[in-house]
Design a protein around this nucleic acid. Sequence first.
DNA 1: CAAGCTATGTCAGAATGCTGACATGAGTCA
DNA 2: TGACTCATGTCAGCATTCTGACATAGCTTG
Lengths: 152, 152
Amino acid sequence: MSQKGAGVDLETSLGYLLKEASSALRAAMEEVLRPLGMTVTHYSCLELLAQRPGLSNSELARGTFVTRQSMNVLLQALERDGYVTRPAEAPVGKALPARLTPRGRRSLEKATVAVRSVELRMLAGMTETEQSEAFRLLKSMTHSLHGGNDAT
Amino acid sequence: MSQKGAGVDLETSLGYLLKEASSALRAAMEEVLRPLGMTVTHYSCLELLAQRPGLSNSELARGTFVTRQSMNVLLQALERDGYVTRPAEAPVGKALPARLTPRGRRSLEKATVAVRSVELRMLAGMTETEQSEAFRLLKSMTHSLHGGNDAT
DNA sequence: CAAGCTATGTCAGAATGCTGACATGAGTCA
DNA sequence: TGACTCATGTCAGCATTCTGACATAGCTTG
């Protein structure tokens, strides 16, 4: 129904396409993570922590694109369930460096395999050169949006 | 702080970059739409309706990447505030075709200008060719994620 | 024609994320 | 040293979106 007025302007908007691609990626990730009882933000937090041990709550929030308040409730849950640990006292300042527990690492391993399969599917049909080009173009868009006026 | 372990693997993940770009775009749109008292979903709904008059609630939901339940509450608010109209009875089936009111059209006009400026900023520094390439690559990613195995 | 399937609109409750606010620790500067 | 600014962790309340559920309309199929 209503397929009459197809292809107007949304079809030519990179912004719309970006949202569409991002939405598809998120949906695909949710699909493979659900059997593992894990959400996308949940996974993102663990992955970030695996690659950069000792990140603080605020840093994790920035890395996963949520507020530090949202990350805080997630971290408390992850800590309560034994996936991450944080010292009772801050070694410096107020920032509490978080680290994965062995349990968190095990849980992440399975999730990483699942998510990697999604990323591979997304890249299917793209040559190495095209992937590099996509990488470069996405970087350019992000940079231009972040207050930057000139892009490389 | 913790800038030590920079550039691990997240920096090479197209999925992460896609989320980063999408997040930056959304933030930029929120920033320019806030002075107009409009949210991103709000705007997306109006824009979609302007380009394809008569779309139903479910169709609008798919076009804006939210559930039809979420779109329903938004549509009811927009209808209550006089931005869109829907017939009391469905002309066919259960789908209620929605249309912009003059007020909705006026409201959209200002928003469109604001959003276009964001999109232009995002495309700054990209040549026509690069934009076409970004377009093609995003399409490929989305298509591959939607169950498709082969990409053009 | 009847049964089944799909899509739609809608209501209600739950989950998730965000804004506002406050106190604290560290660096800056006069 | 003291005032100022900034970043952080955290609590509370609010907003938005999602999941679950139900009734209905139209199409399909035997």
